[in-house]
């Protein structure tokens, strides 16, 4: 009896969660459609690389490209960050003062809204992926449970690294009202060093080494490589991700303290 009750309870909760999320998605269906187009960059790059390969009969190489860029697409969807824009808006509109009065640091509010949004993206990512796999059935692969799990952990860490990076820059709003334009600068190394436009292995060694010294490959390239089952030093990658998370957390704590001090001095 109790087991039956339990099962029905779990079923109920899952059911209502799923339906409410789905309803929320419908509310934002225009947003999602637009966002879908804007997230397709890895697939555009994929199609370019496929044509560039000198010998198109290199099937193995092509499969790797497919897997890498499709994984990159997936990773990008779950590491989207827009905290600079919303923080700037809250700061200008004076909402920040109210947020500061609440007994929870605003950081958690922003990060949780990002995570909630990612959940609502899930079904949509499935739709796009299935479209790809229907039209290019050869590209379908199964990374295996272990890599899938590791990949998802890596995606979460990647999200944290990226979020912290943007959060630190968002703190600049305390000093300059229009700081969100800095986001455009942050986008450049993300585009060219993270492995979004090409797998890092294709880079010249010097550029690759430079890239690996920045946090950007750990935002995109590393989780994509796990998911696409490319050769990658998993332990090393996770250590670097965690290292960046620690360093950026400390930095962001410092930046937050300084920012709030500045904010209170100005008279919030």
């Amino acid at each position: 009896m109790t087991i039956k009750k339990r099962i029905s309870y779990i079923f109920k909760v899952t059911y209502s969660l799923l339906t409410s999320q789905y309803a929320l998605m419908l509310e934002y269906r225009a947003e999602i459609a637009l966002w879908a187009i804007s997230g397709l960059l890895p697939l555009i790059m994929l199609s370019l690389w496929l044509e560039v390969e000198p010998d198109k009969s290199q099937l193995l190489e092509n499969t790797n490209l497919y897997r890498y860029f499709i994984s990159a697409f997936l990773v990008r969807q779950f590491t989207a960050v827009w905290v600079m824009v919303s923080f700037e808006q809250d700061h200008i509109e004076g909402k920040l003062s109210t947020l500061l009065l609440q007994p929870i640091t605003p950081f958690w509010r922003y990060i949780s809204s990002h995570m909630a949004e990612q959940i609502s993206r899930l079904p949509f990512v499935f739709v796009i992926l299935s479209i790809i796999f229907i039209f290019v059935p050869n590209s379908l692969w199964w990374p295996g449970y272990q890599d899938l799990l590791l990949g998802f952990i890596a995606i979460f860490f990647a999200f944290l690294v990226r979020f912290l990076l943007h959060w630190i820059c968002a703190m600049l709003c305390f000093w300059n009202e229009r700081a969100s334009s800095i986001e455009r600068l942050l986008l450049i190394p993300y585009l060219f060093l993270s492995g979004l436009v090409a797998p890092l292995d294709k880079y010249p060694d010097l550029v690759k080494d430079i890239a690996l010294a920045t946090p950007f490959p750990y935002i995109l390239s590393f989780p994509s490589m796990i998911l696409s089952r490319s050769e990658v030093d998993i332990l090393n990658g996770f250590l670097f991700q965690l290292g960046w998370i620690v360093v950026l957390s400390l930095l962001s704590l410092f930046a937050w303290k300084m920012g709030v001090r500045k904010y209170s001095a100005m008279g919030a």
Binding site: Y15, T19, Y22, A23
Partner: peptide, 13 residues
């Protein structure tokens, strides 16, 4: 107007 629940959502769609 949308009625709650999955059925309602799909009907809405």
């Amino acid at each position: 107007k949308k009625s709650p629940g999955l059925v309602g959502t799909i009907k809405h769609l």
